[in-house]
Every structure is written in structure tokens, then in C-alpha cells.
Design a protein around this nucleic acid. Structure first.
Length: 281
DNA sequence: GAACAGGTGAAGT
DNA sequence: ACTTCACCTGTT
């Protein structure tokens, strides 16, 4: 994996495990969109970014400084995903899932944004979740200018806590709005410290997160995996339930993947959701 | 129109 | 401990 630095961009080559489309569409994030020309543009960590990929050449349209302080960690570039794939390919099914999902990476997202987004995700599909998050950012997020276009950052917990249910009505997020509001208030009040939870053990983080109204085990697991850097977290939704029922009728203990459980989950999830695991008709 | 979504929590067995 | 249901909204 080598980097070339230019005034306006950083080019990465030779990274076997980077597939922009898989990373941005595997369901872990909701703010990356593909443009007509195939490049991806998103807003994360308070900044907008364009990412282009052609084969193993990945271009990040930003400065070296911003790339090193923000995006290297966001894209989890310090982790050897080839080694993870070898470790979690415990049987034929997982081997196939890893091959199929090769290129996926877990994004280290903003903690509050991830919690909030996955509260919105309950009983919802990706287009609708994206719409809700987009409307929230447009209403309450800070304006960002990037490459001559206007974008909006994800609003802070404080910003959301200062809103009313009426303010949130235009999101059309239904019964999830009060959950998000209560989560924002818990953070502002100091009852919930997301930064501290990253260092906490998984059980403690789970307990703290699920103490929030409207946050159950699944949403908490997503927040832990995608933003708290707790790689043991293993979100089980309806898709994962299906996959486990079909391929592990005796059950599947995430502990077999030890600290790679979360990444194993992403490969499984991506595989089952694609339908590629089903025999062809 | 009814039924159903990447879930949760309360209330019922 | 397990099952059922309502919750808001959008889509089929």
C-alpha cells in the first residue's frame, strides 16, 4: 500500500482490500452518494470528501494533512483486512462470504452520528434512512463548502438537543424522533459519554447504550462497531437472523471470530443481502 | 387498501 | 423466557 501526495489529492495504490462501492453501500453509512462520473462524495467528521476509484488506484480529493489527520483513520487504513479475512474464513460459507465481500472496510464514524443514524434505521430501509439523515443535516447541520458545492455536516448532539419534536417533524422519521431527541439530551446532560464508551469493555458499552429509550441490542451493536471501535460487536438484524438460520442451524457464537466478529458480520451481511449465497435458479 | 420494513419495549402468555 | 403488538411513514 503506497501513497502519493499532490497539493489537491492523495492517491493510494496497492490496497487489495478497498472497494469504494462496497464500503459505501454495505449499509454501515448513509451519507455517501455516487456521482454521474462514478466518484463518491460524502460528508463525515465535519468535512466533505470526494473519493474516486479505478482498479486499485484510489484518489482522495483532499490535502495530505487532512488525509492523515482525518481520513486515514476514518477508512481504517491501518488494519490488514487480508489477514482478517483469513482469520474469519472458518468454514466454506465464511470463506465464500469473505471472497464476495473482499474490499469492504469498517468506517470509524462519528459516534453521535452513528448512534443517531442507527436509531433512525429501525424498521427502515437504506433510502429512507438516508433521506431522514439528509433532512436533519440540511435543517440543523453546519454549512460546508467543498469543490464549489454546498454540503451540510451532521448536527452535534447539542444542536439536536436544542430542537423540539416539532422542529424534527420535517424529517418524517415517525416514532424514532423522540428516541433521537432523548439520546441527544442524555449526551448533553452527561448521562451518556460516547467518547468514554470507546475505551469501555463491550458489555459496559452495551449496557450504557441500551439504557436509552429506543436503543436496543441491535442499534447499540451498530453504534459500537461503526463508531465506538469495538470490533467484537456483532449486530444481528433480520438479514443476519436469516443467514444464521440457513447456514448455522445450531447457532453461531460470534466469539469464534474473537475480535474480528464485527468484520465477519459485515462480510456475512453483505453476502446474504446480495442474494449471492443462494443457489442459482 | 392491507401488509410489510435492517427494531424496541411493554404487555400478554 | 417466549410470543405478540403498536409505534410513524413510505412503498408495494
Amino acid at each position: 500500500m503506497v501513497f502519493e501526495y499532490y497539493p489537491d489529492r492523495v492517491v493510494m495504490r496497492g490496497c487489495e482490500d478497498f472497494d469504494a462501492e462496497k464500503i459505501f453501500t454495505c449499509g454501515q453509512c448513509f451519507r455517501w452518494k455516487q456521482r454521474e462520473d462514478g466518484d463518491w462524495v460524502g460528508v463525515a467528521l465535519g468535512q466533505a470528501l470526494r473519493v474516486g476509484q479505478c482498479g486499485d488506484k484510489v484518489t482522495f480529493y483532499t490535502t495530505r494533512e487532512e488525509f492523515e489527520t482525518l481520513w486515514y483513520d476514518y477508512f481504517d487504513l491501518g488494519r490488514d483486512y487480508a489477514a482478517v479475512r483469513r482469520a474469519v474464513a472458518i468454514d466454506d460459507y465464511m470463506h465464500a462470504a469473505c471472497e464476495y465481500g473482499k474490499g469492504i472496510r469498517i468506517l470509524n464514524q462519528d459516534r453521535w452520528e452513528a448512534l443517531c443514524s442507527f436509531i433512525f434505521s429501525q424498521c427502515n430501509n437504506i433510502p429512507r434512512i438516508s433521506g431522514i439523515v439528509e433532512r436533519l443535516c440540511t435543517i440543523a447541520g453546519e454549512r460546508i463548502e467543498y469543490e464549489g458545492e454546498e454540503y451540510f455536516a451532521f448536527p452535534s448532539a447539542l444542536g439536536v438537543a436544542q430542537m423540539s419534536l416539532e422542529d424534527l417533524a420535517p424529517l418524517r422519521s415517525g416514532y424514532r424522533a423522540p428516541y433521537v431527541l432523548q439520546a441527544a439530551q442524555a449526551i448533553v446532560d452527561g448521562r451518556l459519554d460516547l467518547d468514554a464508551l470507546g475505551a469501555a469493555d463491550p458489555a459496559a458499552a452495551m449496557k450504557a447504550l441500551t439504557s436509552l429509550n429506543g436503543v436496543g441490542v441491535k442499534v447499540a451493536s451498530c453504534a459500537m462497531l461503526f463508531s465506538l471501535r469495538i470490533p467484537e460487536a456483532f449486530p444481528i438484524d433480520t438479514w443476519m437472523k436469516q443467514a444464521i438460520k440457513a447456514h448455522y442451524p445450531e447457532g453461531l457464537d460470534p466469539a469464534v471470530f474473537s475480535c474480528n466478529a464485527g468484520i465477519a458480520q459485515q462480510y456475512m451481511f453483505y453476502y446474504i443481502r446480495s442474494g449471492a449465497d443462494k443457489p442459482q435458479k
